[in-house]
Amino acid sequence: MSSLEADRGRGPGAAPEDPERLGLVLVICAPSGTGKSTLVRRLVEEFPRFAFSVSCTTRAPRGQERDGVDYHFLSKDDFLSMRDKGEFAEWAEVHGNYYGTPLAPLRKELDQGRDVLFDIDVQGAMQLKRSFSDGLYVFLLPPSRAELERRLRGRGTDAEEAIRRRLAGAAKEMHAATEFDHWIVNDDLDRAYEELRAVYLAGRSKPVFLPGLLRGILQSFEEEG
C-alpha cells in the first residue's frame, strides 16, 4: 500500500512542475524475494522526479511517525466514509487495519506533471488500473520457484513457516501477472534494472502524457512557415 518519492521535502533536487506533460502512474508488483525493493530504489535514485502521495491508515502511529507526513492516521469510521465516497485510488485491509491512497492529491500531482511510483500488492494494482488505465503496470518475476526459495532462505530473516507462506503467496500472485503490461524476469539485477528503466522512459513518451507537445511544435511550424 505504499507509493514512493525521490525527495519528500521538495527541496532543490525535487522535480519541478511540468506544464507540457501529465504525470504518469508507474506500478511495480512482485512476489516477496524477487528483488523489487532493490530495483525500485535504483530507479528512484536515478530519476529524482517521482512525487509522493501520503497514504491513509487506521493503524496507530509507530515510533516517530507523524500525521500528514508518514501517513494520514484516520479512525475506522472516517476511513470507511472516504472509501464509500470513492475517495481512494486504491485501498485494502491488512491484518485488521485499513490502508488507502487518497485520489484527489494523486490526481493533483499527475496534473502538475509529476510521476508517481507505486510499490504495492496485486490487489492494489488492479484497483489503480481501474482509475488509471493509461499507467505503466510492471510485474517482476523470479527465474524459478527454486531460485525464489533460495533467495528467501538466504535473507535469514524468516522462519520456516513464513517462507512457506511467502512461496504459496508468490504462486497466487504470479497467476495475476497476465493483468500487467510488462514482465521483467529478475535473473540478473543489472539487466532487470535496464529493462525497468527502459519501460519507464518509454512510458514517459506516450502521447497521452504529452497533450501539449505536438500542439506547440505545430504552432512553431505555422509561425515560421
Score class of each variant (00 low, 15 high):
residue 99 Y to I: 06
residue 100 G to M: 02
residue 100 G to N: 07
residue 101 T to Q: 14
residue 101 T to M: 13
residue 102 P to K: 11
residue 102 P to M: 07
residue 104 A to S: 05
residue 107 R to M: 14
residue 107 R to S: 08
residue 107 R to H: 09
residue 109 E to G: 12
residue 110 L to Y: 14
residue 110 L to G: 03
residue 110 L to C: 03
residue 111 D to K: 13
residue 111 D to R: 13
residue 111 D to M: 09
residue 112 Q to I: 01
residue 113 G to D: 09
residue 114 R to E: 02
residue 115 D to P: 14
residue 117 L to H: 08
residue 118 F to K: 03
residue 118 F to T: 00
residue 119 D to Y: 13
residue 120 I to S: 04
residue 121 D to M: 07
residue 123 Q to C: 05
residue 124 G to S: 10
residue 124 G to N: 13
residue 124 G to V: 09
residue 126 M to A: 07
residue 127 Q to S: 15
residue 127 Q to G: 14
residue 128 L to P: 08
residue 128 L to G: 12
residue 129 K to S: 10
residue 130 R to Y: 02
residue 130 R to C: 06
residue 130 R to L: 12
residue 131 S to Q: 10
residue 131 S to W: 12
residue 132 F to G: 03
residue 132 F to V: 00
residue 133 S to D: 12
residue 133 S to K: 02
residue 134 D to M: 08
residue 135 G to S: 09
residue 135 G to L: 10
residue 136 L to Q: 07
residue 137 Y to E: 09
residue 139 F to A: 03
residue 139 F to P: 03
residue 139 F to L: 05
residue 139 F to I: 00
residue 139 F to R: 05
residue 140 L to H: 09
residue 140 L to E: 11
residue 141 L to R: 13
residue 142 P to H: 11
residue 143 P to D: 14
residue 143 P to S: 10
residue 145 R to G: 07
residue 146 A to C: 01
residue 147 E to Y: 07
residue 148 L to V: 09
residue 150 R to L: 15
residue 150 R to D: 12
residue 152 L to H: 05
residue 153 R to H: 02
residue 153 R to T: 04
residue 154 G to H: 10
residue 154 G to F: 11
residue 155 R to M: 09
residue 155 R to H: 06
residue 156 G to D: 09
residue 158 D to W: 00
residue 158 D to C: 00
residue 158 D to T: 02
residue 159 A to T: 15
residue 159 A to Q: 08
residue 160 E to N: 10
residue 161 E to F: 05
residue 162 A to E: 14
residue 163 I to T: 04
residue 163 I to D: 02
residue 164 R to Y: 00
residue 165 R to K: 04
residue 165 R to N: 00
residue 166 R to P: 03
residue 167 L to V: 05
residue 167 L to N: 04
residue 169 G to A: 10
residue 169 G to M: 08
residue 170 A to S: 13
residue 170 A to P: 11
residue 171 A to Q: 14
residue 172 K to S: 07
residue 173 E to I: 14
residue 174 M to L: 15
residue 174 M to R: 12
residue 174 M to E: 13
residue 175 H to W: 04
residue 175 H to K: 15
residue 175 H to T: 14
residue 176 A to C: 06
residue 178 T to W: 02
residue 178 T to Q: 12
residue 179 E to S: 08
residue 179 E to A: 10
residue 180 F to M: 15
residue 180 F to K: 06
residue 181 D to M: 03
residue 182 H to P: 03
residue 183 W to A: 06
residue 183 W to Y: 06
residue 184 I to A: 06
residue 184 I to S: 01
residue 185 V to T: 15
residue 185 V to P: 10
residue 185 V to W: 07
residue 186 N to L: 05
residue 188 D to Q: 05
residue 188 D to E: 02
residue 188 D to C: 07
residue 191 R to M: 09
residue 191 R to I: 13
residue 193 Y to E: 02
residue 193 Y to D: 01
residue 194 E to V: 00
residue 194 E to I: 01
residue 196 L to E: 05
residue 196 L to C: 08
residue 196 L to M: 14
residue 197 R to C: 04
residue 197 R to V: 00
residue 198 A to M: 04
residue 198 A to D: 15
residue 199 V to R: 09
